[in-house]
């Protein structure tokens, strides 16, 4: 398998899309830094976007992975590996390692630019190092989950165009699902209802300090089993994990043990199932 990994990384190094994705990651960080500097200046707390790569990396990874694995099927080069006597499992696992490596490389580019631009501009991190290390470890597992899902998709669809589009669509679906679930979970338990006027008798949005506002239960608030289900979905979806990790500074603490567990579960299930199905697949 090391032979395949070596060949895969050689190809990745020569991939223009991969380098373009790294460039996009670097450009995004600089944009984020510039934006924060513009609005908050040196008051910006670096921790707020220090692990932002975990939320972003899924998008370029879906494109890189779709084109990378799509070439294997589309140009038939996967046949060279199988004819050379490599097992299906070796081919699958080598591709998983490569996709994971690509994701880590893009994340490292993000972090490198954060350190080079962010630290001089906004100063060092405020959170304690232990917490940051734990969150970094969790983010690596989340990236692993992304990689496993994309590798699975990439090995089940033989058509290059369909594969690439499916991966991008899957990414957006997971992302919007995570945002939607987070919105629902963020809904407050109680809201202020009734006529809400300010001191000049003008109707305004609900704020407790305004006259006549009454505290009532929010019908949008999720409770009981439903809330548990949504919390589970949020912790299970890699983008849900990414949202929580990237907002670690604001919404601390996150579900520290559930998320890595679910990531490992996704990696194991996607790899086990993907490898099994790929092993039984008729390759053209």
């Amino acid at each position: 398998m090391t032979k395949l990994i070596s060949a895969n990384f050689l190809r990745l190094r020569k991939s223009r899309v991969f380098w373009l994705a790294n460039g996009v990651m670097a450009a995004l960080v600089m944009l984020i830094c510039a934006d924060h500097y513009h609005y908050l200046g040196r008051e910006t707390i670096l921790d707020g976007f220090f692990l932002g790569y975990v939320l972003i990396v899924g998008f370029p990874l879906s494109v890189v992975c779709g084109l990378y694995l799509g070439t294997e099927y589309g140009d038939g080069t996967i046949r060279n590996k199988l004819i050379a006597g490599h097992t299906r499992w070796a081919v699958y696992l080598a591709n998983l390692v490569t996709v994971f490596g690509a994701a880590l490389a893009m994340s490292l580019v993000f972090e490198a630019v954060v350190c080079m631009v962010g630290i001089p501009l906004f100063g060092p991190l405020k959170s304690d190092w232990e917490f940051i290390l734990i969150m970094t470890g969790e983010s690596v597992l989340t990236i692993g989950a992304f990689s496993a899902v994309f590798t699975l998709t990439g090995h089940l669809i033989q058509n290059r165009a369909v594969m690439a589009v499916s991966m991008v669509l899957l990414t957006f679906f997971l992302f919007f699902a995570a945002i939607s679930v987070e919105e629902k979970l963020k809904a407050p338990e109680f809201i202020y209802m009734g006529p809400m006027y300010d001191q000049d008798n003008v109707v305004v949005a609900a704020q407790e300090e305004f006259q006549g506002a009454e505290l009532t239960a929010n019908p949008q608030y999720l409770s009981g089993k439903r809330r548990e289900l949504y919390v589970f979905l949020h912790d299970f979806n890699p983008f849900g994990q990414a949202l929580q990790i990237s907002n670690m500074f604001e919404s601390h603490p996150v579900h520290l043990w559930q998320m890595p567990l679910y990531s490992l579960l996704i990696i194991a299930a996607a790899t086990g199932g993907g490898g099994y199905l790929f092993g039984r697949k008729d390759i053209k």
Binding site: R11, K14, S15, R16, T71, D75, G76, T77, I78, R79, N80, I83, A84, G85, K284
Partner: peptide
């Protein structure tokens, strides 16, 4: 299989290389 080489249908090559 290591002792054999094959070109099945279209040649299996990387067009970007």
């Amino acid at each position: 299989r290591r002792r054999m080489g094959a070109v099945v249908e279209n040649p299996s090559i990387y067009p970007g290389m």
